[in-house]
Amino acid sequence: MIGHMTQPVTRTFGSAGSTQVRKLRVMSFNIAHGLGMDGKVDLRRTAEVIRNSGADIIGLQEVDNHFSERSGFENQAAVLAKWLEMDYSYGPNLIEPPVQPGQPERQYGNALLSRFPVKYSKNHAYTSPSSLIEDPEPRGLLESIIDLDGTFLSFFNTHLSLGEEGQRENLKQLLEITDASLFPTIITGDFNLSPEHLQLKDFRKTYTDTFGSMGMGIAYTFPARYEDASSAVCTEPASRIDYIFTDQTTTIERTEVLDTPVADHLPIIADLLI
């Protein structure tokens, strides 16, 4: 279910003279439409990783919605939300016509899962750079307003371009959109950029890299660790391109990379005080 605004949202941080603080466990996870390192698509394995993590709010990238036979034409965000008993929102970036007339459009993009109600969501399509040769896949930013028992949270989830021109434009638009937020802000996503990349320099002036702030700048997330003796395939995480960013209203308590082969990226966790 994609949440819809039922009433005007006002900025609320608890009653007068008090400070309301909530502890949240946040995850970012590029699930590769449920495709594991063993070459098998099994969304239940993805759900189990999320369930066992204890995450409250999860930003997911590479999520299919009636997309193709590879994922059984499932609405993966809705299926995960049902299994995990969570609310959700979805932002399609790649949209193709249905296989047969009358069937749903085939979509691929970002999703959000939340233990708390999603009051509003909007998908922002990034403006494409002049050249799409480096990366023809459309990219976007999913914005969701989450109701933390009367305190609202702006949660943004994204998957940036592979090419430098696209990344530069994506980050510029990401900052413009998130700067307009009225509430505490969290940003998750697969940025396809290493922490030291110059493209992230301006972004870091505004938002805090949770892992970097905890001294975990080399907490690699891609590719997932996998070893298959029968095919002599062996991979080790070698880069950090997945992130959880926060604004200055948030305290970071703990961060962790989860070691699992259920996708080609490793999921990351941050325990936060909002």
Rank of each mutant, 00 (worst) to 15 (best):
D135S: 08
D135E: 02
P136K: 09
P136A: 05
P136L: 04
E137I: 11
E137Q: 13
R139N: 03
R139W: 02
R139K: 12
G140I: 09
G140H: 10
G140T: 09
L141I: 12
L141H: 11
L142R: 11
L142N: 07
L142I: 11
E143V: 08
E143H: 15
E143Y: 12
E143G: 05
S144N: 15
S144D: 13
S144F: 12
I145F: 02
I145N: 00
I145R: 11
I145D: 03
L148C: 12
L148R: 10
L148V: 11
D149W: 10
D149Y: 13
G150Y: 03
G150D: 09
T151E: 15
T151M: 15
T151K: 15
T151V: 15
T151W: 10
T151Q: 15
F152W: 00
S154N: 10
S154Y: 00
F155W: 04
F155E: 02
F156D: 02
F156M: 09
F156K: 02
N157G: 07
N157M: 07
N157K: 08
N157W: 06
T158L: 13
T158P: 10
T158D: 00
H159T: 10
H159G: 01
H159E: 07
L160E: 05
L160N: 05
S161K: 03
S161T: 08
S161A: 13
S161I: 04
G163T: 01
G163F: 03
E164F: 10
E164Q: 11
E164K: 14
E165T: 05
G166P: 03
G166W: 03
G166D: 07
Q167V: 05
Q167F: 01
R168V: 01
R168F: 05
R168D: 05
R168Q: 11
R168M: 03
E169V: 04
E169D: 13
N170I: 11
L171Q: 05
L171S: 04
K172A: 14
K172P: 06
Q173I: 08
Q173L: 11
L174G: 06
L174N: 11
L175H: 07
L175S: 09
E176C: 12
E176Q: 14
E176H: 13
I177N: 00
I177Y: 04
T178W: 08
T178F: 06
D179R: 15
A180D: 13
A180I: 07
A180E: 15
A180Q: 15
S181R: 06
S181V: 05
L182H: 14
F183T: 00
P184K: 08
P184S: 11
